[in-house]
Write a protein that binds this DNA or RNA. Structure first.
Length: 263
DNA sequence: ATGGCTGGTAGAACCAGA
């Protein structure tokens, strides 16, 4: 039986994470790695690091300083699109086609700023608009697709350490949860994370840097996701959240997700 | 406890993350 192992990780600077991304690739050995927040223009992306480790196929959509996404792969990639769902030039998406015809979409949804009100915080409106444009795009999809990345929304009550405490905190507000829900419904996207770790079980992918000890009180959120088309979802045979990576040296504040697909 | 910390870039009394 052939299978693909696909990983997704908000790396928070690919250049600052060279040591731990190498460790992750050696220990986990995914066929494909999707990165978000690479914070590197394509000209300074450390492609040789990935090539040396056997990930010789690269699809990059980077920009200077902020944002940026990349797909590194042992398998040939056919690049097929880069959407600008915010319509402002930020590098937040890259899509490829994998051998066998599966579409893989790697997305970094805007964080949305501090105040959950688009009239006083334009970034919050841009986040909602980004998700709306993804919804319009999802409605037209007809091929088996896997979309992964940092969605910057923790939709379920059990996706955050305290539902009550985070109701007014950007990432878990009702309007974000509703907007993400419409996106999910537009294609019947299957939330693979919750398929393998059903609610109300604890499942987090991000812990703030702003705590001296990220394990204290376990104030995490599930901001990173892997969603599959209904026709593709039955091929997902495993899904893991690599929580120990949060304790590695000089970590990202997000941890990697891995899905295994049979072909 | 709306603080706390981290990275990029500039060389900050910076910005952004979420």
């Amino acid at each position: 039986m052939t299978s693909f192992k696909i990983a997704s990780w908000n790396i928070n600077s690919v250049r600052a994470r060279a040591a731990i991304v190498e460790r992750f690739l050696k220990e986990e050995g995914p066929d494909v790695l999707c990165l978000q927040e690479t914070k590197a223009h394509n000209d300074v992306f450390p492609g040789e690091l990935f090539t040396r480790l056997g990930y010789v196929h690269h699809a990059l959509n980077g920009q200077r300083m902020h944002h940026g996404v990349a797909i590194l792969s042992r398998l040939p990639l056919a690049e097929h699109d880069r959407h600008d769902w915010q319509d402002n030039g930020e590098a937040r998406h890259i899509g490829v086609r994998l051998p066998g015809g599966i579409r893989l979409e790697n997305v970094y949804v805007p964080a949305g700023g501090d105040v959950p009100d688009r009239t006083v915080n334009p970034k919050f409106g841009q986040k909602l608009d980004f998700l709306e444009r993804m919804t319009r795009w999802s409605e037209k999809l007809s091929e088996p697709t896997l979309i992964v990345g940092d969605f910057n929304v923790a939709p379920l009550e059990c996706d955050v350490w305290s539902h009550k405490a985070l109701l007014d905190v950007v990432s878990h507000t009702p309007i974000e949860v509703e907007t993400l829900g419409r996106l999910q419904a537009a294609h019947g996207w299957v939330d693979l994370g919750r398929r393998f770790v059903p609610a109300p079980q604890r499942c987090y992918t991000w812990w703030s840097y702003r705590s001296p000890d990220w394990t204290k009180n376990d104030r995490g959120r599930r901001l990173d996701h892997m969603w599959a088309s209904p026709s593709l979802a039955p091929q997902a045979i495993a899904h893991r959240v690599h929580e120990p990576c949060r304790a590695w040296e000089r970590p990202s504040d997000h941890v990697p997700l891995v899905v295994e697909l049979t072909l």
